[in-house]
């Protein structure tokens, strides 16, 4: 059991270089949002915390999608 856990950290994850690999951004965004909200909410409460995290994450992902679409359109027009 211990060795299988350690072995999981010594073998590189199979990750192709394609657009799908960019989805690894989302867990990172979630981590950033969770830590940021954990530091900024004065009185931590499960409901408030989850609502705030969800709202900021949705805003962040929405913003990233809009930027992606704009950049895609610019690239499409330019080429």
């Amino acid at each position: 059991m211990t060795f299988s856990v350690i072995a999981a950290f010594t073998r590189v994850l199979d990750m192709p270089t394609n657009a799908l690999s960019l989805l690894w951004l989302f867990p990172l965004a979630l981590a950033g949002v969770v830590v940021y909200k954990a530091l900024t909410i004065r009185k931590l409460n499960a409901v408030v915390f989850l609502r705030e995290v969800f709202a900021l994450l949705a805003f962040l992902i929405g913003l990233l999608i809009i930027i992606t679409v704009i950049l895609f359109v610019i690239t499409w027009i330019a080429t």
Partner: peptide, 27 residues
């Protein structure tokens, strides 16, 4: 004495770090 805040930070930071190691190994 802010145990909830400490727990959230500990889990999030450790999980993010562990995922990074899992993806690319300790290398």
């Amino acid at each position: 004495k802010e145990h909830t805040r400490a727990a959230i930070i500990l889990v999030t930071i450790l999980l993010t770090f562990a995922v990074g190691l899992y993806i690319g190994t300790i290398g």
